[in-house]
């Protein structure tokens, strides 16, 4: 026994090294679990605060651009508003009251963001205190941005669409084909589209939007436009690259989408899953 302790003591540096590596390896593997849920990432109060102050300084250099963008978005929305009554005749059908206000939007500022890693995240300056919870969708005026990963009282961290593990349920607007958008980790301006079967006729410039099937995003949020289409002779699915609608390199204000009926949809779908088993 004494010899054993002596052995460990002689090689203590190596054993400490092993211990620390095992701890870090375990953290890498269990990264999404409860332990790291909100404390060990940039949604914790201290890190969020540092990033918020950093952003406050950077804002001085880009306020002009942000103003212009928000004004344009306003213009587009106002134009849409004037068109609306002509298309929808509300006397003919009836919307359940619960659905009328199904989605609610909270505005937040992106205080930190990355685009060049394999797993990119963004930090927002709003958290639980403003009603943001895990799993909500995030968009801006141009299109889809990502999904909230974890929250603290005043900050939230989200997976950006440029996260190689995030799968987004999408449809090709023209053909109504359901497919999956996923980032391959290389170009921050493009995302790949998977599971588009080869009988669909694709051409460049087709719009890709969210499907609305997973209760996170409303249907019809723009993801991007097809940039290139490729298929191998023996492949079942196309290899499609999509130009992203959002410029991830300059995110400023975003909307976090709360779905009032998410719980209802999820529990209903769960009962069906249980019945199938």
């Amino acid at each position: 026994m004494r010899r054993l302790f002596q052995f460990i003591y002689t090689y203590r540096a190596f054993f400490l090294f092993l211990l620390l590596e095992v701890i870090s390896g375990w953290l890498v593997i269990n990264h999404n679990d409860y332990l790291s849920a909100s404390f060990f990432n940039s949604s914790n109060a201290f890190a969020g605060n540092v990033y918020e102050n950093k952003q406050a300084v950077e804002d001085y250099f880009r306020l002009n651009k942000i103003n212009e963008r928000l004004a344009q978005e306003n213009e587009a929305l106002r134009n849409k508003l004037t068109l609306e009554p002509a298309i929808v005749d509300s006397s003919n059908f009836f919307t359940p009251t619960a659905l009328a206000g199904q989605y609610d939007y909270t505005i937040a500022t992106v205080v930190n963001n990355s685009v060049d890693r394999f797993r990119n995240y963004f930090t927002l300056d709003k958290g639980e205190a403003d009603g943001i919870t895990e799993g909500m969708g995030v968009i801006n005026g141009y299109g889809l941005i990502g999904k909230i990963k974890s929250t603290s009282k005043n900050y939230a961290v989200g997976y950006s669409a440029l996260h190689s593990n995030l799968l987004i349920s999408a449809v090709i607007e023209e053909t109504k084909t359901l497919c999956t958008a996923n980032w391959d980790g290389k170009n921050p301006r493009q995302i790949s589209l998977e599971y588009v079967p080869r009988h669909i006729k694709l051409k460049n410039g087709m719009r890709i939007v969210t499907s609305g099937f997973n209760a996170i995003f409303p249907p019809g949020i723009k993801i991007g436009e097809i940039a290139s289409v490729d298929i191998k002779d023996d492949a079942t699915f196309y290899e499609v690259k999509v130009d992203l609608a959002v410029d991830f390199q300059s995110l400023d204000y975003v909307y976090v989408i709360g779905n009032e009926l998410q719980q209802e949809q999820d529990s209903l779908e769960n009962t069906i899953k249980l019945a199938d088993d």
Binding site: A13, F14, F17, L20, E21, I23, S24, G25, W26, L27, V28, I29, H31, S36, F40, N41, S42, N44, A47, V50, Y51, S114, R117, R119, Y121, T123, V157
Partner: peptide
């Protein structure tokens, strides 16, 4: 913590220090 990549830099920097 700041990079939202818990474990990655810990493992690499410990290796560097070793």
């Amino acid at each position: 913590i700041f990079y939202n990549s818990l474990g990655t830099h810990m493992a690499a920097t410990t290796l560097l220090a070793f």
